[in-house]
Simulated assay, not measured.
Amino acid sequence: MNSNAKIYVAGHHGMVGSAIWSALEAKGYTNLIGRNSKELDLRNQLSVSDFFSQEKPAVVIDAAARVGGILANSNYPFQFLMENMQIQNNLIDSSLNADVQKFIFLGSSCIYPKLAPQPLKEEYLLTGPLEPTNEWYAVAKITGVKACEAIRKQFGKDYISLMPTNLYGPNDNFDLNTSHVLPAMMRKFHVAKEIGNEPVELWGSGSPMREFLFVEDLADAVVFALENKFEDNLYNVGTGTDLTIKELAMLIQKTVGHTGEIKWDSSKPDGTPRKLMDVSKMEQAGWKAKVELEVGIQRTYEWFLENLESFKEVRI
């Protein structure tokens, strides 16, 4: 890939997009373009089409999405389905119409069936029912995977889909109403520590198992995908290892320095029992995650502390 190739990173201000932007700059790419939501509404088909006609990017990396945890998915099912479909469909369709040769679509491990065999292989897609607590987001992302696959099949373009496991890191969302499990825990433990190590209540039983990938590792995988041509259209991106939510809570609690009690609210949903990615295809292609979970959590907490003033006070 030419270092001067025009690369459009959709969602470049988000946790994933900003990490990708930084990774591209570090590799010497000099012609990066991005637009925030005020400059370009990706839900608007005409606006997106006009943007592509004007800018004519050579590469598009789709890191734009409406994201959130169980609570957000449950409260806003229509927005999670429709807005994500609008965003990705406009980007994919405009890329095809503008003759973009390389498109990297980022999805999520939630596209796989709730009770699929573990670890999750790419071929398990569409083999069973989805996890109800995030099926709206999952359905949207599945349509994006299939759209890229269809373009690859019909037009022979290098459109690929990378499915990361649960992500965390700098620029994560720490809003307790919309955040995912790791940043939500981190903020709860921090607030509880600051007010005298009060008990922290967490959702579920703590028994589900989850895999977590540091966002800078995903960014590295995206750059790897940019610089290489893959044989298939769909690749899992993860660490290949997982732990229980209870183990995660204890690790975050230790990192934050909270010494109070952890209370588990078993009346709240656990979600999928286990969600471990089979990352053998990505490893065979030549890429492997590097950042250990303990290191990534420490770096995330350091970023959290540096940006405390941007977070509103919350009650736990």
Rank of each mutant, 00 (worst) to 15 (best):
L106T: 11
K290L: 15
E149P: 04
V48K: 08
D220W: 15
D50M: 13
S205K: 09
G107D: 01
P119Y: 03
Q154C: 04
A10W: 08
V100M: 07
V215M: 11
E211V: 04
L276I: 05
Y124I: 05
T178W: 07
S179P: 12
N36I: 14
E122H: 01
W203L: 01
A147W: 08
Y301V: 09
P199V: 12
F174N: 07
A26Q: 12
L130T: 08
P273V: 06
N197M: 13
E261F: 03
L120E: 02
I20D: 00
A64N: 11
S310R: 07
N90V: 06
L40V: 06
P164W: 00
S3P: 05
F224L: 08
G28R: 00
V291T: 12
V223A: 03
Q86Y: 05
M85V: 13
N73F: 06
V256N: 08
T239N: 06
A19R: 01
E294V: 10
W136N: 05
L218A: 08
N197G: 13
V295R: 01
E39L: 12
A249D: 11
K114H: 07
L226Q: 11
H190T: 14
L182Y: 11
A10K: 06
I160L: 15
L293R: 03
A289G: 09
A26V: 03
A98T: 01
P273W: 06
S109K: 05
D232E: 14
S49F: 15
I297H: 00
Q298V: 06
K153E: 10
V145I: 15
L130D: 04
Q154S: 14
R66Y: 13
P164N: 10
K290C: 12
G144V: 10
N36T: 12
A225C: 11
A147R: 15
L115A: 13
A150S: 15
A140D: 09
L182K: 14
A219L: 13
Y8H: 09
V181S: 03
A63D: 08
K6I: 15
R274A: 08
W303K: 08
A221H: 06
F311Q: 11
D242M: 06
E247Q: 11
S53P: 04
N2D: 10
I61E: 04
H12P: 02
F155M: 03
G156E: 14
N233M: 02
D278F: 01
P269E: 00
I7D: 02
E306Q: 06
D172S: 12
E283R: 13
G169H: 05
N90W: 03
D175I: 07
L24D: 07
E302K: 12
D99E: 15
L32P: 00
D62E: 13
L218V: 03
D50Y: 14
N31R: 04
K281V: 05
S207H: 14
S205L: 09
L308S: 01
G68Q: 10
D217T: 10
A221R: 07
E283F: 00
D217R: 10
L126N: 10
L42E: 04
M250A: 15
N134R: 00
L126G: 02
P119Q: 00
L32D: 03
N73E: 10
N44D: 15
E211D: 14
S53Y: 07
T30V: 13
N31D: 07
L115N: 14
K141Q: 14
E135Q: 09
A138R: 01
F214S: 07
T143Y: 02
V181A: 12
Q45P: 03
I142L: 00
T259D: 10
